[in-house]
Design a protein around this nucleic acid. Sequence first.
DNA 1: GTGGATGCAAACTCTTTGCACCTTG
DNA 2: CAAGGTGCAAAGAGTTTGCATCCAC
Lengths: 134, 134
Amino acid sequence: MERNTRQRQAVLDAVERGGRALTPPEILALAREAVPSLNLSTIYRQIGTLQEEARLVKVLLPGQTPRYEPVCGQVHGDAGHHHHHFHCNVCDRVFSLHACPGSMQDLVPKGFVVESHEITLHGRCPECRRGARA
Amino acid sequence: MERNTRQRQAVLDAVERGGRALTPPEILALAREAVPSLNLSTIYRQIGTLQEEARLVKVLLPGQTPRYEPVCGQVHGDAGHHHHHFHCNVCDRVFSLHACPGSMQDLVPKGFVVESHEITLHGRCPECRRGARA
DNA sequence: GTGGATGCAAACTCTTTGCACCTTG
DNA sequence: CAAGGTGCAAAGAGTTTGCATCCAC
């Protein structure tokens, strides 16, 4: 599963051009600019294989449909670089953050062992900060 | 929408007896001990009204189906007390945490405004800390 | 007795799968 | 030319809704 089809290239381009975590329908819309016949199931299948190849990461935010972002969108080339996300309450877009407060071991009562953590921030992105877009 | 039906009582009891955040099917299973005819759609409807009455909170963890916990399971009686959750990687149970690191505004680049945050910790609960249960 | 609640089944949304056709290597 | 990929449509999982019946007040 790594044939270089127009569809595969369109999906990769879309995810990279997006510059942020995209939902499958968002990827479809972007990728259709290159390949109008593109189908949602192809998106899902490519998402699957691209994840296996570690070229894409699934971004899960509480209560939201899964999104996907390219692995090498950041400064560090190492796959799966630890980071968190910001969700804009207005435009519903998701942005990657590069800061992390570090260990959360002090948040838990005695006896619990923290192995990992996820932080999601919600608020307004720069674009939506002004301009009272509902 | 606050009639005291057997079904409503069974759902409330189930959620309180659970002692932790439960999924709709888990609530159904527990509540059926009292009312065997109980239907999943009734669970969902009661979940809805109990949330409106602030007797239940929806607990959303990244990539997990929604769970629900009673509002007054904690020390503070005030509804909707801000808290976070710990997910045990071994037994898959979810525990409430009462600590919070506070504002996360310093995690975001300039221009972003943080209005709220969610933190999910993953690891091992005291019970699963030893005893190599898969 | 009346209006809200329930149970069942159908509708919906999101994702996955089966299958015939098409394309890459 | 063969293996794998694509598009379409149908199947699944989880949640919601329409509707006739039932029951708490």
